[in-house]
Design a protein around this nucleic acid. Structure first.
Length: 813
RNA sequence: GCGAGAGUGGUGGAAUGGUAGACACGCUAGAUUUAGGAUCUAGUGCCUCACGGCGUGCGGGUUCAAAUCCCGCCUCUCGCACCA
């Protein structure tokens, strides 16, 4: 076939459509259930049905597909499902704009995206698809809620919550981002509001969530989660406040207790009002009000001057019975520790600054190295020897921590304790488009969970969903008014819905049996497939979704639903695919790349290949529309290995063909094991170039065998083009049912090598030599090189270094 | 401020102690074509006519040999941030 004809007949979209139809007809990607094979549950994060699939979906999903295909070819039965994370704010916002129901918008998008997902040519098992806004799915969100409630893991509390004034909803702490505390979704500064809220008691699992020893997750994710959980070991110390009672503080430095010269409470501390003396009341009230009004931006500005107000009260330092003044100051946060601190200005920077400003005594109780005995000019937060600390004088501060704590424990004035930064997970949302919380409020019976057999509590089909700050469901009397499941009397329903992160905390269990109605998943299916072997998705979910996912699995274990501790054995994150300008893709920047136009022009294999080729997968990078053309050219050339003409020249070396084929298998195998897609594609391109150069110059059998192997290892990357080439070779359908080829290390070794000759470490010559050349022979060869000799002139050969099969370095001087 | 990651041609990147720049994009020249933003061939780190020299953010060190290891610094990205 001539190049001209080949060019004209190349139509990647037609080629790909043909094979997608054939795959669907033949059920090629139906999940393998043969239990004689080892299982591999490959999971990619499920998309939100925002309308169209964008490159931000292709980037994580198609390499994950390549990896899943690789595992399948390696003899695993692979489960690779997909679904839609379909509840949430964007549906409401879009619905408000268009005047339609969120449900309508969502399902239309799902329909659209399902078709686009199929265009990827991935081996997704669409039979297990899950849509989280289906009652069939969210019924089990509610079931979990009830189970959590029964176990005391779901509780209701009046609490100041982070509130987004634009989206009119509560946010989880994790959804508030940045130093100026903005809404993760819309960027609006968040405010505080008091509401009764439902929370999940994730803090019960804080300690266990710190243990990553049995999972292979990126260190970065572990670190993020560890920092988020924020475990801190210290001592809780009880200070008596005169005329009030005991108030506890938390400190990691009990060894500095004798240096506590004042005491600070957060302005929100419940004791503040009661301890304030009448003389100070006015000033204190003004400060508390100012703190409450102050925006979070100002409140958390680290560079701001410390401010505070004396309450008139005094606390007794339990170590030395000293009376110390009690202040309130906004640098002490109600949300961490006990909301009160013992202030040790000598050894804490913040306390130092405060003490300087309000002329409070600064006492040195830990000696800095080479201390001259003079008053400290800056706080010394390091370790040293305890002084001015009564019977502990002379004790190293490192030992002092334990000894002071033990001493306090003996006297009932304190105890060793652990504090976490992690807070319970606030799941209530005052929105329509989410899972209704299955709780009924009865005047007689109080808080009553909806019985299991009455689930699901259906989200009303047609509702007023405009955000008013109130839960929209409160405006729907048919929903709101109900009877108490316990006494049958009139009652009202909880009208808040759940955070959508609840939906995504267990969805991979539902994939196993999406229509099972006796539990969240069929335990038999679980036995066969759980846990997830390989999870892939964005690093941005490091602390939200991935922490909740682990939490849910641990609760499920304690409910007896599963017998393992971690949901996903291995996790890999891809980086972000950026716009052509190197900025994050966003509609407002106008740099969003629509994959459809590239699929239409170059086909899905080219887009897949380009996204894998662009750079290391875990790093992401900017989109380059030109770059995809190179990948498209390569695919066309790969196809022409079968359909094109021969290259010119004499006989090619068949051993070289074998050697390079084995080397390719090894390279791709190792790269795919390690998620290095970019270097795989480079190796495939290089090999294609080589094959084109020797086509028609080796024996037919050898050529055919080499081509078979090439197409086989190509198939996970470019499934359509590999299938087309395979068919053109006259091979039996389908290349995707081939076993992954093995390789022989011996065959990779070349007979001839290029011996590198260096003089004093500088490259001077390259000489062809047998691979097994001896050190002596290699040295002789090097010394006799015409390019090397001038560099040896008049110098003495001190020694020579020989790296077998690689190089000789002559050291002269 | 703390923590993590990164810095290599015009561009994306490759090489984790042993030939720096694989593989691509782009560019240059040529071939083919009515034409092309198609395809093919050759070239392409910088300086130099050449011999050769220089070259992986900067400065030092270890080594026969450093992009790679060590020390100090600079820059960028991300995360956390008054966490007691």
């Amino acid at each position: 076939m001539s190049e001209t004809k080949q060019r004209k007949t190349y139509d990647p979209t037609d080629l790909e459509r043909r094979w997608q139809e054939r795959w669907a007809e033949s059920g090629l990607y139906k999940t393998e259930e043969d239990e004689s094979k080892p299982k591999h549950y490959a999971l990619t994060m499920l998309p939100y049905p925002s309308g169209d699939l964008h490159v931000g979906h292709w980037y994580p999903m198609t390499p994950s597909d390549t990896r899943a295909r690789f595992m399948r070819m390696n003899g695993y039965r692979v489960f690779f499902p997909i679904g839609f994370d379909a509840f949430g704010l964007p549906a409401e916002n879009a619905a408000i704009q268009r005047g339609i129901q969120p449900r309508e918008w969502t399902y239309a998008n799902i329909e659209q995206m399902r078709g686009q997902l199929k265009q990827m040519g991935a081996m997704f098992d669409f039979d297990s698809e899950v849509v989280t806004c289906d009652p069939e799915y969210y019924r089990w969100n509610q079931w979990f809620f009830v189970k959590f409630f029964e176990k005391g893991l779901a509780y209701r509390k009046e609490a100041p919550v982070d509130w987004c004034p634009k989206d009119n909803t509560t946010l989880a702490r994790e959804q508030v981002v940045g130093p100026d505390r903005r809404c993760e979704r819309c960027g609006t500064p968040v405010i505080k509001k008091n509401l009764p809220q439902w929370l999940f008691k994730i803090t019960d699992y804080a300690e266990e969530l710190l243990d990553f020893s049995n999972i292979d997750w990126p260190e970065r994710v572990e670190t993020l989660q560890r920092n988020w959980i924020g475990r801190s070991e210290g001592t809780e110390i009880r200070f008596e406040i005169e005329g009030y009672g005991p108030v506890e503080v938390f400190t990691t430095r009990p060894d500095t207790l004798f240096g506590a010269t004042f005491f600070v409470m957060s302005p929100e501390h419940p004791a503040v009002e009661k301890i304030t003396t009448p003389e100070q009341a006015e000033e204190v009230r003004a400060y508390v009000e100012r703190a409450a009004r102050m925006s979070e931006i100002d409140r958390t500005d680290v560079t701001r001057d410390k401010t505070g107000v004396f309450t008139g009260a005094y606390a007794i330092n339990p170590a030395n019975r000293e009376e110390i003044p009690v202040y309130i100051a906004d640098y002490v946060l109600m949300g961490y520790g006990t909301g009160a601190i013992m202030a040790v200005p000598g050894h804490d920077e913040r306390d130092f600054e405060f003490a300087r400003k309000y002329s409070i005594q600064i006492r040195t109780v830990i000696t800095p190295p080479d201390w001259d005995g003079e008053a400290l000019e800056v706080a010394y937060a390091g370790e040293g020897t305890m002084i001015n600390s009564g019977k502990f004088d002379g004790t190293p501060s490192t030992e002092g921590k334990e000894r002071v704590t033990a001493w306090l424990e003996e006297r009932g004035a304190g105890k060793a304790t652990v504090t976490y930064r992690l807070h319970d997970w606030l799941i209530s949302r005052q929105r329509y488009w989410g899972t209704p919380i299955p709780i009924v409020y009865c005047d007689e019976c109080g808080i009553v969970p909806v019985p299991e057999e009455d689930l699901p509590v259906l989200l009303p089909e047609e509702s007023e969903f405009m955000p008013t700050g109130e839960s929209p469901l409160k405006l729907d009397p048919d929903f709101y008014n109900t009877e108490c499941p316990s006494c049958g009397g009139p009652a009202t329903r909880e009208t808040d819905t759940m955070d959508t992160f609840v939906d995504s905390s267990w969805y991979w269990y539902r994939y196993l049996s999406p229509h099972y109605d006796e539990g969240p998943f069929d335990p038999e299916r679980g036995e066969k497939w759980l846990p997830v072997d390989q999870y892939t998705g964005g690093i941005e979910h490091a602390i939200l979704h991935l922490l909740y996912a682990r939490f849910f699995t641990k609760v499920m274990r304690d409910l007896g639903l599963v017998d393992f501790d971690e949901p996903m054995t291995s996790l890999r994150n891809q980086g972000n695919i950026l716009g052509p300008d190197g900025q994050k893709m966003s509609k407002s920047r106008g740099n969003v790349v629509n994959p459809q136009e590239y699929v239409d022009r170059f086909g899905s294999d080219a887009l897949r290949g380009f996204l894998m080729f662009i750079g290391p997968w875990n790093e992401g990078g900017p989109w380059d529309g030109k770059g995809i053309e190179g990948v498209s050219r390569w695919l066309r050339r790969a196809l022409s290995l079968v359909t094109g003409g021969d290259s010119s020249g004499g006989e090619a070396d068949p051993t070289e063909l074998e050697r390079r084929t084995n080397r390719l298998i090894k390279k791709i195998t190792e790269d795919l094991e390690a998620f290095r897609f970019n270097t795989s594609i480079a190796a495939l391109m290089e090999h294609t170039n080589y094959l084109l150069a020797v086509r028609g110059r080796v024996g037919d059998d050898e050529w055919h065998e080499a081509l078979r192997t090439f197409v086989t290892v190509l198939s996970p990357f470019a499934p359509h083009h590999a299938e087309e080439t395979w068919a053109a070779m006259g091979e039996e359908y389908s290349v995707h049912e081939q076993a992954w080829p093995g390789y022989e290390e011996d065959l990779i070794q070349a007979q001839e090598i290029t011996l590198i000759v260096q003089v004093n470490g500088k490259l001077r010559d390259r000489i062809e030599a047998p691979a097994d050349i001896s050190e002596e022979a290699a040295r002789e060869l090097a010394l006799s090189s015409a390019r090397v000799r001038p560099h040896l002139e008049g110098k003495e050969l001190r020694k020579s270094i020989y790296v077998p099969g690689r190089l000789v370095n002559l050291v002269v001087g």
